[in-house]
Design a protein around this nucleic acid. Structure first.
Lengths: 155, 155
DNA sequence: TTGCTCCTCACGTCACGTGAGGTGGC
DNA sequence: TTGCTCCTCACGTCACGTGAGGTGGC
């Protein structure tokens, strides 16, 4: 036992937030909205986050930053992942095939929709990037011209 | 004169909004924040938008949706484009080379930063997309298995 | 004991959504 | 004249930001 490197167990909210590039307030807000809670609260009332919590947070921010999902949309996705985890651990036991098929079908639909969103976003980003680069190249040529002018005609 | 196809000149706010996939409120809000105003107001106080306005709006939404820029960030970008337009039209007249170089340098910097943002976003989206697809394939295999089960073992 | 971070209210802000009540245009 | 859309307040909401005032832990 021990060798955990720390006092209690898990990281404090400020460290988790800083590492993820968000504020402590954001983590508390996510907890309030039911999408991200710490595995442990200390007796003094402080939140402590384990490695799985940190991984979960990374996932949430990936969906938020990359796809611009709302907190509610993230909640639906996380919920679907959680239910699939339950399903996997109870693979051939309690659940009836019909129920499992329903869950998996729903999960596939959610993921398909996310892929569609990603594709739509990338279809926007590609041309925009290309256009910006073209403009940059053109403006750098203009800069070079202006540099020549300001040398040959100083005042 | 005339042959414009419409009564006054330009589109009404509801049509512009619907075509762009946003609400009228959003357009009024953008006007309030100084990033998007109609070229004409009718005597009755209604907003009328021309084709250049529609193109401008498309650009704004591209930056908002694709990159998640705030209204203020969009304003800075639009402002930079506007000043470059002025610069271009007054190419060899009023502006001194030093001023022009300053403006162009600033514009290049803004665009470089946007390209960097796009690259960062695409670097996030690619792997996420791949992971979702992998999961989808795996879950569809599971669905097929469950289908087999529900046939061979109906009750 | 002193800092530092944490805690819970609670009000502020950004980007709109959503009526309330009234006027303009085909 | 009747609908429909437009107008301006103005309050509501979502996702946090930002102190206010107080407690916990190295």
């Amino acid at each position: 036992m021990s060798g955990q490197g720390g006092p209690g167990a898990g990281m404090r909210i400020g460290d988790v937030a800083a590492q993820a590039g968000v504020s402590s307030r954001t983590l508390r807000y996510y907890e309030e909205r039911g999408i991200f809670k710490p595995s442990v609260h200390t007796s003094g009332g402080e939140r402590r986050y384990g490695p799985e919590d940190v991984a979960q947070l990374r996932r949430i921010l990936e969906l938020r930053n990359g796809l611009g999902l709302s907190v509610e949309e993230v909640r639906v996705f996380i919920e679907s992942e959680r239910r699939l985890g339950v399903l996997r651990s109870a693979y051939h036991e309690t659940e009836r095939p019909a129920e499992r098929m329903e869950l998996v079908t729903e999960a596939v639909a959610i993921r398909r929709e996310l892929v569609a969103r990603i594709d739509a976003k990338m279809a926007q980003l590609g041309p925009l990037r290309q256009e910006l680069l073209t403009t940059i190249v053109r403006q750098e040529q203009r800069l070079e011209e202006l540099r020549q002018e300001s040398v040959s005609e100083p005042a």
